[in-house]
Design a protein around this nucleic acid. Structure first.
Lengths: 203, 203
DNA sequence: GTCTATACGCAGATAGAC
DNA sequence: GTCTATCTGCGTATAGAC
C-alpha cells in the first residue's frame, strides 16, 4: 500500500492517492447529480457513494459548486463533447450518429447532461455559464462545418447554416429528453439521421 | 369588498375568496418554480410572493408536490399547450409559429417549462409522470396531423411522420433552452419554420 | 381560515483533535 | 489528510390558539 516516494519523502505529499480520491469523488458526484440534479443531490450522498466523509470530500473540492464545475469539465473529457472538431476524415453525419449511439450506451451521461442543463437556466445556478458557453461554441463549430459543406454544394439550397446548426443542437438535446422518459418509443439516432438527411445532399 | 353571499350565509363558505387565493398562489408558484425550479424554490418563497404565510398556503395545497401538479395543469390551461388539436382552419405551420411567438412574449412560461422538464427526469420527481404523458400525447397528436398531410401529398417523400413528430417536439424544446440562455443569438421561430419547410411541400 | 410556534430533519461549511 | 463534533440556516409539515 505504501507509495514509493524516493529517498527524501519530506516535500511533495502522496500525489497518486490524491488523484485517485479525486477520481472517486468525480465518479460519485457524476452519478448523484445525474440521478438527483445539482440542487437535489447532497454532498453527503456523494461522500457516501465515494466511501468517505463529507468533510473529506470538501478537502478536495472546497465547495459544492466547484465540485459541479469539475464534474462538467470531466464529463467533457470522457465523452469528447463535440466542441472540438475531431477526425477530419469522419463525415459530420457519422460523427453525430457515433456520438449519439455512444451516449445511449454509457449510463448516466445523458441524465447528467439533461438534468443539469435544465436546472442551469435558473437564477444563480453555478452551471449556467458553462452551458451558455457550451452552446455558443457548439453553434459556432457546427455552423463552420455546415458552411464548408455548403461550399462543396452538399447543403440543400435554402438552408441557412446558422439556423441549421442551432436546430441540430436543439433537436439533439430535445430528443434526448424524450428518450430518457420513454427509451422504447423514441429513436434518437433515427431522428438525428432524418434531420441530417433533410439538410444535406448526397455526395 | 364584501362578497355577496345571499340571505342565508351560514352554509357554504366564501368560495370566491378561496378561488382568488388559490389563483394568487398559482401565479406566485409559477414564478418561483420558473426562476428556481421545483427543488430550488421553497414554499416560503411562494408564500411571500403571494402575500400570505407558509401555513396558509398549505391550507390550500396540502403539499409541495400537489402544488407543482396544480401549477403544471394551470399552465396548460393558460397557454393552450398544443396537446388538443385546435382550430382545424389553421395550418400546422401557422399554429406552431403562433404558439412559439406567444411563448416568447409571456415571461416565465418557457422558463417554467424548460426548468421543470429537465428536473423531471430525476429520480422521484413529482412532475415526471406529467412530462412523460405530455410527450406521449404530443407525439401522437403531431404524428396524426403529419399523416393527414402525407395523405394530401404535402409531406416530403421519405419523411416518416412518427420520426418527424418526435423531432419537431424535440427541436422545439431544445431551441427554447438555447434561446433562454442567449435570446439575442437564437431565432426560435426561424428554426421551427426552417424545419417545417424542410419536411412539408408547398400546396 | 389564518396565524404563531414549533417539530424534525438535512443542508453546506468550519474548527480542531488526531 | 481524515475524522468527529458542531455551527448556522433553511426545508416541509403539523399542532393548536384565535
Amino acid at each position: 500500500m505504501s507509495t514509493k516516494e524516493g529517498p527524501q519523502a519530506s516535500r511533495r505529499g502522496p500525489y497518486a492517492k490524491s488523484t485517485e480520491r479525486r477520481q472517486a469523488i468525480l465518479t460519485a458526484a457524476h452519478a448523484v447529480f445525474a440521478a438527483r440534479g445539482y440542487r437535489g443531490g447532497s454532498l453527503q450522498d456523494v461522500a457516501d457513494r465515494a466511501g468517505m466523509s463529507q468533510t473529506s470530500l470538501l478537502h478536495y473540492f472546497p465547495s459544492k459548486s466547484q465540485l459541479l464545475l469539475a464534474v462538467l469539465n470531466w464529463r467533457d473529457s470522457i465523452t469528447g463533447d463535440g466542441t472540438a472538431p475531431p477526425d477530419p476524415e469522419e463525415s459530420l453525419v457519422d460523427a453525430v450518429l457515433r456520438q449519439a449511439r455512444f451516449n445511449e450506451d454509457v449510463p448516466g451521461v445523458l441524465e447528467l447532461y439533461t438534468v443539469l442543463c435544465g436546472e442551469a437556466v435558473t437564477e444563480g445556478h453555478p452551471g449556467r455559464p458553462y452551458f451558455t458557453n457550451r452552446f455558443e461554441e457548439l453553434r459556432r463549430s457546427y455552423t463552420r462545418q455546415l458552411r464548408e459543406l455548403a461550399g462543396e454544394g452538399r447543403l440543400r439550397p435554402g438552408v441557412d447554416p446558422e439556423v441549421a446548426a442551432a436546430s441540430l443542437i436543439g433537436l439533439w438535446d430535445g430528443i434526448q429528453t424524450q428518450w430518457l422518459l420513454a427509451p422504447d418509443k423514441v429513436d434518437m439516432a433515427g431522428c438525428l439521421r432524418g434531420y441530417l438527411e433533410l439538410i444535406l445532399l448526397p455526395e
